[in-house]
Amino acid sequence: MEIKSVSNVTVVIPCFNDGAFINQALQSVLNQTLKPDQIIVVDDGSNTATKTILEAIKHNDVKVVYQSNYGVSVARNVGIDLAKTEYILTLDADDYFNGTFLEKALKVLKRDSNIVVVGCYYNDFIDTKINSKIKKPLGGTITDFLVQNNGIASSLFRKKSWEAVSGYDESMLNGYEDWEFWINILKEGQFMHIIEEPLFKYRTKKNSRDKKAIKFHDYKLREYIFNKHKNVYLENFEGFTKHLLYQNSRLRSDNAKAISTIETKIGNTILAPFKLIKRIFNK
């Protein structure tokens, strides 16, 4: 007799040279108020130090598989393909969830078939110092994702959504693969729900893959996403244009504020000696 799944969730964790952090990520999953059926860690060609740590993991609910360094998209696809559950939760090896995320996210996903992804608010952190400012991705429909990524990579979704779009794009080696994946699974009119609680912690690294993507590959990656989903952009042209105009307006406003601040600082610097002289003579 087959034992019925408890949560029907598999957590997939790609890992590349994150041996120092993987156990914290694992514990955050193992300590969930709703336990996943299985955790699959996919080592993406890590160094010897990380492999040694992964080989030391001994837990009945944790499976570690190894591959050459093919990239995070391949690692996620390999893990999800191995999963036997209806639901998939992705988590990067250097981040972690608060204890109630899975329970709350699964309730949301089960109650509405039009919701295909569930994420949450989050805090970023460096080492052990957590930034108190809460980051608030918007989620939403496809139009909310055409100009920027309004979700987070570590989210809960149905395996059938992944199957319908043939998984993560394995050619996107330089980043934004999660953004493209959300566009892919939202393009039929579905919705990403964001739990308005900071239930996720995102580690900030000096030379992270995300930072490199923004600094060195942003235009090329955006161009690739646009060309791949050109029909989606055309079908949602009005929504896309409105979001683009809003982003442009906000950028101009932020630039104007920055310039004003710089000018004020320069003015204060120039006037400082004269103010000092004035105070001396007024004594």
Rank of each mutant, 00 (worst) to 15 (best):
S5H: 02
V9G: 06
T10E: 02
V12Y: 02
I13D: 05
I13V: 12
F16Y: 15
G19W: 04
N23F: 07
L26V: 07
S28I: 07
L34R: 15
D37G: 13
I39V: 15
D44P: 13
D44F: 07
D44K: 03
D44Y: 05
T48D: 12
A49V: 10
A49Y: 02
K51R: 13
L54A: 01
H59F: 09
V65G: 12
S68R: 07
G71Y: 03
G71M: 03
S73F: 04
A75H: 02
R76Q: 03
I80S: 02
D81N: 07
L91D: 15
D95S: 07
Y96A: 08
Y96G: 14
N98W: 11
T100C: 09
L102C: 04
E103A: 08
K104A: 15
K104M: 15
R111Q: 12
S113C: 10
N114T: 14
N123S: 11
F125M: 05
K135G: 02
T141L: 03
I142Y: 00
T143I: 08
D144E: 14
N149T: 04
N149H: 09
N149P: 03
S154D: 14
R158K: 11
E163Q: 14
E163P: 04
V165W: 08
S171C: 08
M172W: 08
L173D: 12
N174H: 11
E177D: 13
E180L: 10
F181E: 09
W182K: 14
N184S: 12
I185L: 10
I185P: 00
G189F: 00
H193I: 00
E197M: 05
Y202V: 11
N207K: 11
A213H: 05
A213M: 11
I214D: 13
K215G: 05
H217Q: 10
Y224N: 10
K228C: 03
K230T: 09
Y233T: 00
F237I: 14
E238L: 12
K242T: 05
Y246R: 14
R250T: 04
R252A: 13
E263G: 02
I266Q: 08
I266F: 05
G267S: 10
N268A: 10
N268K: 14
K275Q: 13
K275E: 14
K275S: 07
I277S: 06
R279Q: 15
R279D: 15
F281Y: 08
N282K: 09
